[in-house]
Design a protein around this nucleic acid. Sequence first.
DNA 1: CAATCACTATCTAACAGTTGGTAGGTTTGA
DNA 2: TCAAACCTACCAACTGTTAGATAGTGATTG
Lengths: 187, 187
Amino acid sequence: MGANSREAILAAAKGIAQARGYGGLSFRDLADEVGIKAASIYHHFPSKADLAAAVARRYWEDTAAALEALSAATPDPARCLRQYPETFRKALANDNRMCLCSFMAAEYDDLPDAVKREVQIFADVNVAWLSRVLSAAGVVRPEESQQRARAIFAAIAGAQLVARSRADISLYDALIDGYRAAGLLPA
Amino acid sequence: MGANSREAILAAAKGIAQARGYGGLSFRDLADEVGIKAASIYHHFPSKADLAAAVARRYWEDTAAALEALSAATPDPARCLRQYPETFRKALANDNRMCLCSFMAAEYDDLPDAVKREVQIFADVNVAWLSRVLSAAGVVRPEESQQRARAIFAAIAGAQLVARSRADISLYDALIDGYRAAGLLPA
DNA sequence: CAATCACTATCTAACAGTTGGTAGGTTTGA
DNA sequence: TCAAACCTACCAACTGTTAGATAGTGATTG
């Protein structure tokens, strides 16, 4: 159970943090879920801050890979944009969880610096991808694509947060539709 | 220090919860800030759940009053809409805090039911006000005002969250501008 | 081949500090 | 004098973290 344990810890920690945040991530609960003892986690990660930073880094790495895969598989940028909200929808579909980095954004004050950094990179990754695709789709002029990308990213994070607070994924869908109707997202 | 203590506890708890959330709200820290002992809080609130519910209720009551005051003082609904993002901006200006109910929306899983209810009412209050003002301003057709109101509320909550994660209030302003440029908010 | 060695992964047991909450005594002010 | 307001002192549960013991594995060596 060498590298497997490390991966299992990362995966379980991600799931817990998406539901309870950094503060709600306890070593005992995490260890229980993995099937080991809390002290064993320290063999793989030197501290909670390091573990959380590793989880957040893996989170944006996976997101970056998924977005690249999406634009690779879907040459039409307009269809890429249609698909984008699905990424955030999946978290809600998974037991009303939310984006790890949105949760940690709320916990900003209590976050170790190393974790803050990874959380911010997640936003950068999303905005960069959106900006590129928006530009390619001709939705906005190139000099406006960054502003629009940031607006879309923030709005979708907000939609997920509001839908979570009612445990209602159909509200998320309605909010995304609302963004399309208002012109924030291409119809 | 009769009703004053109760008010002081509510005010301090609001400030702490806007920075650290429900989970980060500790009776010792709260009591320190008020200038009493932790056990004394139980003379005013029977439990943490009751205290948090009272804080959240007071939060949406104050918000409802402030929004009513805004529409009363500003007959032009278009100017009301211009002013609306300012409510959320103030939290960021106050030591990078965020909306209490946005934070608690993230903490949904660990929230007592009584608190969940108040958090949802906060959203209802905002959406109802926005819907009314949007309709009056003629920004959207009356049958679309609810959808647009929800979209605006969620998007602004998201903008606040993202800006907080970078401790950058100018990012909030830029995001609101982005919403205007995209047509989500009236220019 | 057998014995030793080092290493990785895990464990038990405990630490000091924090948490929400309780019991019961003391102060304070009308 | 009486009750509201606040206190001290404690409780059990939980937190991240550490020390040190115990297996199992694979390579090195006599």
